[in-house]
Nucleic acid binder design. Structure first.
Lengths: 232, 232
DNA sequence: GAGTGGTCTAGACCACTTG
DNA sequence: AAGTGGTCTAGACCACTCT
């Protein structure tokens, strides 16, 4: 179920970091202390902390506890803004379309199946300059009415909400990262020179059956990098 | 110590996948079965399997076991070759130098400290064409004589060997991925057109004290992508 | 010595899919 | 119904660093 203990603890700690209540450099409480405070086993705490490390929100500093690294973009936590400036997630439009061959492969559906395509952008808050543009694709078949209504709506959707509304369980994510030259569209959308490199990130949200959706992001490499902490 | 049970099981399964004994599409034995066969607790098996998934060697297909995805580059397992062609790791040279400011930051040492810089390349085996070039940097201070001798040698070193020889414990890795335009050197080294995007990957190997070394790789995006499987 | 994270055990129950 | 991975518990001991 969505309400697993380690997920709840992860969300709570992530919220404290993203809100600034826990600032970069702070130390997290000890694992045994967290386990006691929340009334869970230490293994649950460790699973939550491993998630924080994987997403780059905190790092283990053996054997002196975990220290906080800083806030992240909620919808793609492994994407790290290179400056300290805050950002905004902006929904652009929602359209209905037929799955391309690529959609079909990544989402495990048939080409031509109905999908919802949602365009969004990430902008720096101070100057409103574009940092990244993205497309979220959701299959329309095989989800319940509430989820259909949600994906057809005109604001940003995070995976947690979609998981709850669609009553599906998210098993994990599969992310691909690559580099490429920007397209013509991206020159204008990202305010880039004619020839520039962009960071291309694709994520598929895996559930027990078909994926709930895919995310494809083109990011300015001077604004973002992908940042991954891997424990042993 | 290095000889943790989950690491041994991970290495054994990874070896079976990289050698082709377990082929893409095969199913791994059940967690409980592996636990029994190896005489370990199921949590140990799960930790090893999580590592295989994180590196893209296998993927959990709930609730039907794990299936094998395929072999990986041993020194950077999250880097996935886009073709099925085998590759070679080629050591180019080993030089001694002083840590740059960048080295100092990533390795947690002082600028000017002695370091060993090792150049290497990844090439396709069939045509011998260049796929990626890389630089490994190791601090010379604070490691034992055997480790100094090893890093000054003229062949490729993997982290496992270095960990064993240096008698240091690897706690984990910190990886950054970004995109950029290729430099002049890379045009010739990677056989790229004048303006091309490269995938830039940096990895720091963390131990309980100072990092054992850093890896910096410039990869052709038509040969490689970075591939992460993230469990919940 | 105290406190930390890292490793490991031996159970238990649940959710989900397949036969 | 059987078998799978996912979650969780309640312990234990070790390795490491700091004071």
């Amino acid at each position: 179920m969505q309400g697993s203990l380690h997920k709840k603890l992860f969300d709570e700690l992530a919220e404290r970091i993203n809100s600034g209540q826990l600032a970069p450099g702070d130390r997290l409480p000890a694992e045994r202390r967290l386990a006691e405070d929340y009334g869970v086993a230490r293994s649950v705490v460790r699973q939550a902390l491993a998630g924080l490390a994987r997403d780059g929100l905190a790092a283990p500093s053996y054997p002196r506890g975990y220290h906080v690294l800083g806030p992240r973009i909620p919808c793609l936590p492994r994407l790290r803004p290179l400056t300290g400036e805050p950002w905004d997630l902006e929904h652009i439009d929602t359209t209905q379309a037929q799955a391309t061959d690529r959609d079909a492969t990544t989402l495990g559906i048939a080409a031509g199946d109905p999908v919802v395509v949602r365009h969004f952008a990430i902008r720096g808050r101070e100057r409103g300059d574009p940092w990244a543009t993205g497309i979220a694709t959701h299959p329309l078949d095989g989800i319940n009415d509430a989820a259909s209504e949600l994906v057809l709506s005109h604001h940003f959707i995070d995976d947690d909400t979609l998981e709850r509304v669609a009553q599906r369980r998210i098993i994990g994510y599969h992310e691909h990262v690559t580099a490429r030259l920007s397209t013509d569209n991206e020159h204008s959308a990202l305010d880039l020179p004619t020839l520039a490199a962009v960071l291309d990130i694709t994520r598929v949200t895996r559930t027990t059956t078909t994926p709930l959706g895919g995310l494809s992001l083109a990011a300015r490499p001077d604004r973002f990098e992908v940042d991954y902490l891997i424990g042993t």
